[in-house]
Amino acid sequence: MNCTKEFTHNAPFVHVLMHEITVLLGDLALNGKEGAIDLRGLPLLDQDKKQLEDLLGRGEVSAIVNIMGETQIWETAYSGVWWLRHKDTGDKVISDQVAVTIIPEILKTHKSDVKSSLERLRTVFKTEEKREDGNSHDHEQLR
């Protein structure tokens, strides 16, 4: 990737961030240590953020998590470097994070959630069996 040329034009801050990401990725590769950068805490202009986003590019994986508003997650062009963008219910971006990890925590299913969904699945299965009229909006309940 020919970032080097672009770097010369970029705000110094973005340069520093890219360096930071490189260090974190090195840590992940060598020691398996995960890291993250919260972009909200940094005095970045919207343009800077956009620039960083463009520099990191898009990789093979992207996901959307729908909880308390949308969360967009994508792996950048650099494997192991993820972008997490949390939005609120009003579709406003409330947090941007760069996570350096194998897989972002929020994508993993938690054991307790597995348990409770198992329970619910069983309940639904039973309900399905019991149901007589077959006309219900109960799937709503499963949200």
Binding site: I67, M68, L84, H86, I94, I106, S112
Partner: peptide, 13 residues
């Protein structure tokens, strides 16, 4: 029915 992901997102925010 609130998942642990919701917790995580809330905590992240």
């Amino acid at each position: 029915g609130v998942s642990r992901r919701a917790f995580l997102k809330y905590a992240a925010m």
